[in-house]
Simulated assay, not measured.
Amino acid sequence: MISVASILRKAGAPAFLSTDPSTVRYCTGVSLSEGVLLITHAGISLYTDSRYIEEACCRVQQAGVSVHSIEDLRRRMQRIHMCAMQADRVFVQDHARWMRTYKNTKFIQTNGLIEGLRRKKSTDELREVRGAQRCTLHVLRQAERALKPGVSERAIAGLLHAWAQERGAEGLAFDPIVAFGSHTSRPHHHPTQRKLRARDIVQIDVGVRWHGYCADKSRVYFIGEPTERQRHIYAAVHLAKRTATTAVRPGVTNHELDRIARVVLHRYGLEQYFTHSLGHGIGLDVHEGISLSQRAPEQQLLRGEVVTIEPGVYLPGRFGIRLEDEVVVGTAV
Rank of each mutant, 00 (worst) to 15 (best):
M1L: 11
I2S: 05
V4H: 10
V4R: 07
I7Q: 02
L8C: 13
R9Q: 15
G12F: 10
A13Y: 05
L17W: 03
T19G: 04
S22N: 06
R25A: 07
Y26R: 04
L32D: 05
L32K: 03
G35A: 08
G35E: 01
V36G: 00
L37R: 02
H41W: 01
G43S: 02
G43M: 07
Y47L: 01
T48H: 05
R51C: 03
I53V: 15
E55W: 01
C58M: 08
Q61F: 00
A63W: 03
A63R: 13
A63Y: 08
G64E: 03
V67S: 01
S69V: 02
S69T: 12
E71R: 13
D72I: 01
L73C: 07
I80Q: 08
N104E: 13
N104L: 08
F107K: 01
I108E: 10
G112Y: 06
R119Y: 00
S122I: 04
S122H: 00
T123A: 14
L126K: 06
L126C: 05
R127T: 15
R127Q: 14
E128Y: 15
E128W: 12
E128L: 12
G131D: 06
A132H: 03
R134D: 12
L137G: 03
H138F: 11
V139C: 14
L140P: 06
A143K: 04
R145E: 12
K148T: 15
G150L: 05
V151T: 07
S152Q: 05
S152K: 03
S152G: 07
E153K: 07
E153H: 05
A164R: 09
E166L: 09
E166H: 13
G168Q: 10
A179I: 01
A179F: 00
H183D: 10
T184Y: 05
R186I: 15
H188S: 12
H188K: 12
H190Y: 09
H190T: 15
P191N: 02
Q193M: 13
K195Q: 14
K195A: 15
L196F: 06
R197Q: 15
D200A: 03
Q203T: 12
Q203N: 13
G207L: 10
V208A: 14
V208S: 07
W210I: 02
A215H: 04
D216F: 02
K217D: 10
S218V: 12
V220R: 01
Y221D: 04
I223A: 12
I223K: 11
G224R: 06
E225T: 11
Y234I: 04
R242W: 00
A247P: 02
T253I: 08
E256K: 14
L257Q: 08
D258H: 14
R259N: 09
A261Y: 00
L265Q: 12
H266I: 00
H266V: 06
Y268W: 11
Y268G: 08
Y268K: 06
E271M: 12
Q272F: 02
Q272R: 15
F274Q: 09
T275R: 13
T275G: 01
H276S: 11
S277F: 00
L278K: 07
G279Q: 06
H280R: 07
G281W: 03
I282T: 12
I282F: 04
G283M: 02
I290Q: 05
L292D: 11
Q294F: 01
R295T: 11
A296D: 09
G312S: 07
F319T: 05
G320K: 08
D325H: 09
E326A: 14
T331S: 09
T331C: 11
T331Q: 15
